[in-house]
């Protein structure tokens, strides 16, 4: 599904990704872990197409297409979804109106007819029940005045509505208490199918108690320096990152 080869990216003059390789297949859950400043959020932003980052080398293939050639909205329409670490507050636009626009823009991209109001509402109701989100939240302006938990839950709701092939969760656990974390993780797990894949970007292991990864990768200084299974996450939790730096021959 996704094949990242030798990816280099910089912001301004600062190179952050320095030759990153990663392959994700349908049905898999990958966790990207790493210390602060390793480039975790950069990777998520580059995949979603944020303009602030400049890709200087490497390729990203998504179902055989060159993802880097596509505008952010085209990537979304192809099935890439980024759950934001800090969802943006947009006063004056209701979540409902926002998602209706998104759904129909994506349908237009795929050459499908726009969804009519009745079907949209039906689908909406279904997804609301699915991720356990309240109607009142959706009538309010998008993320405006939402608590941290509400914002993240809204991200998962949007994911449910848009049904992406690849979901990238960028530090979804940041700012969440354990109950909110569990609800968000439950939503992600419910949305899992053999056809889609998830990349969980996280600093801490605790989210991985709820969203169990098939693979765990350690991102350090812009590259993936170690890969393993979920046990690697537990080891990182226990021992921190220093031993990995030592393995790389760095003095700690």
């Amino acid at each position: 599904m996704l094949k990242i080869t030798n990816l280099h990216a910089k912001i301004g003059e600062k190179e952050i990704l320095k030759g990153l390789n990663l392959e994700v297949k349908a049905g898999e859950v990958h966790a990207i872990m790493g210390p602060n400043g390793a480039g975790k959020s950069t990777l998520a932003s580059v995949l979603a197409g944020r303009e602030d980052y400049e890709v200087t080398d490497g390729t990203v293939e998504f179902f055989g297409k060159d993802l880097l050639e596509l505008a952010p909205e085209e990537r979304a329409a192809e099935g890439v979804f980024l759950a934001f670490q800090y969802p943006v507050e947009i006063p004056g636009v209701s979540t409902t109106n926002f998602l209706k626009t998104a759904v129909n823009e994506i349908r237009k991209y795929r050459g499908e007819e726009p969804m009519d109001a009745v079907n949209f509402l039906k689908m909406f109701k279904q997804k609301m029940a699915y991720v356990n989100i309240d109607q009142s939240l959706l009538n309010r302006a998008l993320n405006e005045g939402f608590s941290g938990g509400e914002k993240k839950r809204n991200e998962i709701f949007q994911m449910a509505v848009l049904e992406p092939k690849l979901a990238i969760l960028d530090e979804t656990d940041s700012g969440l208490d354990i109950d909110a974390l569990r609800i968000v993780a439950e939503g992600v797990n419910k949305l899992k199918t053999p056809e889609n894949a998830t990349i969980v970007v996280t600093h801490y292991q605790r989210l991985l108690d709820y969203i169990v990864p098939d693979f765990v990768h350690v991102l350090y200084k812009g590259r993936i320096v170690k890969s393993g299974t979920k046990e690697l996450a537990l080891e990182l939790e226990e021992r921190g990152y220093d031993w990995i730096k030592e393995e790389l021959g760095e003095t700690v």
Partner: peptide, 29 residues
């Protein structure tokens, strides 16, 4: 707001439509 624009684009809304939606939201009150 460029963050808001990117957020909308990341949900599949074209840049032009996102700009229009933001302008309308700005005028709404």
């Amino acid at each position: 707001n460029t963050d808001a624009l990117f957020y909308m684009q990341a949900r599949g809304i074209s840049k032009e439509a996102a700009r229009s939606l933001l302008m309308l939201a700005f005028a709404q009150d």
